[in-house]
């Protein structure tokens, strides 16, 4: 019974959370209020773990909440519940698009969508930069010298040129940066 409720709650979250993983958060907070399955503090902890482990954050959080609520079966139930609505929606969208792929209308929609998509990704990249390479508090009080987190910036520049010079799988550089982080206690 609890599993069914867990499935339905996450299916609802998956259906109504538009715009990526973090959009599921408000739903999870209200689920906590509604059911008492987990507290707000627990949710904050679960989010921290979801952000520092591989995988999409929304999926990680669903798995964690499901596990905390009803063990392994709960983890599977919540995760499958979360992705099921979007799988159905995307399959329908993909099917329709395939049919009209050659139409002038669809082509011109995508002509406008592609730079938009790139702009959105660039903006979200900037928010990671803000979080990592800049000290926003210093920036806000106009202390420009302290605004740059120099060690991080230096590592970023080195990584940028290393990737240009030695184009390896991104995972290689992620592992390398994790080691750098541990060694230099970033």
């Amino acid at each position: 019974m609890m599993l069914l409720q867990l499935f339905l709650e996450f299916a609802r979250t998956g259906l109504f959370a538009v715009g990526g993983g973090l959009a599921t958060l408000p739903f999870l907070y209200s689920l906590s209020d509604k059911t008492n399955w987990f507290s707000h503090e627990q949710l904050t902890d679960m989010l921290a773990v979801s952000e520092s482990t591989p995988g999409p954050i929304g999926v990680n959080t669903a798995t964690y909440v499901g596990f905390a609520t009803a063990g392994l079966l709960g983890a599977v139930t919540a995760t499958v519940g979360l992705v099921l609505p979007s799988v159905i929606v995307i399959l329908i969208v993909a099917r329709v698009l395939d049919k009209f792929r050659e139409s002038v209308l669809v082509k011109s929609v995508f002509y406008g969508l592609r730079p938009c998509s790139t702009g959105l990704i660039a903006a979200s990249g900037l928010s990671v930069v803000e979080l990592t390479l800049l000290n926003m508090d210093a920036l806000k009080s106009f202390q420009f010298l302290n605004a740059l987190r120099l060690p991080y910036l230096i590592i970023a520049v080195i990584l940028f040129f290393a990737m240009k010079k030695f184009p390896k799988h991104p995972a290689f550089y992620i592992a390398l940066s994790a080691v750098i982080g541990i060694v230099f206690k970033l």
Binding site: V49, I121, V128, L131, L159, Y173, G181, I182, L186
Partner: peptide, 29 residues
């Protein structure tokens, strides 16, 4: 897990890498 020092340091490093990876991805796109 998220409070373990080794995880925190590793993730700080990874975040720098993610910045650069996203920048490269955007340039390509």
């Amino acid at each position: 897990f998220a409070d373990l020092p080794v995880v925190k340091h590793a993730f700080s490093g990874i975040r720098v890498c993610v910045c650069v990876l996203i920048l490269n991805a955007v340039l390509k796109l």
